[in-house]
């Protein structure tokens, strides 16, 4: 499997200003030393609660936000070192789908104008070919030709999200960040859009970073899954492994909190106490120790190392003192 995207030690800090001179007094570590890679045609799901930094991570990867430290490489090209001009060229390979297509589509442009613009700015295809490609695109995302002359407000939520997806596809990208792309949709529309994303991946071999707070959706769409808490990835492995045997107490609690549409299921729920702490002053030691049902003395003091609790062929990375560093295995 060839690697498409490689993220190494990526961090994004925001200065928190305050005081008389509005100087930066503290750092908000939205993304803190995150590393992973995504293979061609695969999907990495990213789950976590509001404020855990998952959206910031998605934006930092495609440099919609400038990362504070670390590198991102797409097919070996270091995205993080490109000049503005080079980045502009490279943007055609990296696209993003947002949660609310209504907010991300210009209300004053027809769908046709919105879809055509990226092709014009990147000088891709002849005008005649562009038209054919747009029609093909509409067909792929399940919209009809007449919508090209319509405005975003004329559509339902599901149709707008299809337009958002078509817009992300116009430049034939290799990598797409889908940030809560189905979260605003009704159940029956959501399943249609999820199937569409899977189809696109099969047909075009696109890699996805799929960000969502919905664990069931992430399980359905992802090959690998990373769980984020306060800016760090605390557990990462294949979707099947993660959902069958979560290791991190936070992952366990998250999964048990998901309500299941089956009244017969007697839930053995782990209800976490309290709220997620502020990322401006994250707790010392393990950031999860304030809410962890299995907290130990060491957790309050020392940040846990990331260990591979799986095998070399089927890695299962976890960031927790319950899983000590084995001597034989490599620390990542």
């Amino acid at each position: 499997m060839s690697e498409l995207l490689k993220v190494e030690n990526l961090s994004k800090y925001f200065p928190v200003r305050g005081g008389l001179l509005r100087r930066a007094r503290k750092q908000l570590k939205a993304v803190d030393d995150v590393s992973f890679s995504i293979a061609r045609g695969r999907t990495l799901g990213l789950v976590g609660e509001s404020g855990c930094g998952k959206s910031t991570l998605g934006r930092a990867i495609i440099r919609l936000l400038e990362p504070t430290a670390g590198t991102v490489a797409l097919e070996g090209t270091r995205i993080t070192e490109l000049t503005r001009r080079e980045l502009f060229e490279r943007r055609r390979d990296m696209q993003i789908i947002f949660q609310d297509p209504y907010a991300s589509l210009s209300p004053r442009r027809t769908v046709g104008q919105t879809l055509l613009e990226p092709l014009e700015t990147h000088r891709m295809m002849t005008p005649a070919r562009r038209r054919d490609w747009l029609l093909e695109l509409l067909e792929i995302v399940g919209l009809r030709e007449h919508i090209l002359t319509r405005y975003p407000h004329e559509f339902s939520g599901g149709q707008r999200q299809r337009v958002g997806i078509a817009r992300a596809l116009t430049l034939k990208p290799k990598f797409i960040v889908a940030d809560e792309a189905v979260s605003a949709l009704d159940v029956s529309v959501q399943s249609q859009v999820l199937n569409l994303l899977r189809k696109l991946q099969r047909e075009f071999g696109i890699s996805f970073l799929f960000i969502s707070h919905d664990l069931a959706v992430v399980q359905h769409i992802s090959d690998e899954v990373g769980v984020m808490y306060l800016g760090k990835i605390v557990e990462m492995t294949s979707a099947s492994r993660l959902f069958a045997r979560p290791l991190h107490p936070y992952t366990e609690a998250l999964m048990s909190a998901v309500p299941v549409p089956d009244p017969a299921r007697k839930s053995s729920r782990i209800v976490l106490q309290g709220d997620v702490p502020s990322p401006i002053d994250p707790p010392g030691g393990c950031p999860f120790h304030t809410r962890c049902p299995r907290v130990m003395e060491v957790c309050r003091v020392t940040p846990p190392p990331t260990v591979n609790a799986g095998s070399t062929e089927a890695p299962h990375f976890v960031n927790c003192h319950l899983f000590p560093v084995p001597n034989t295995e490599e620390d990542v």
Binding site: V187, S188, S191, L194, N195, A216, H220, P261
Partner: peptide, 18 residues
Amino acid sequence: LLASIPRIRRERLQELPV
């Protein structure tokens, strides 16, 4: 409606019923 919701810890389907 019930069939079209992805469910946690259920075998992953290639396509969701819609």
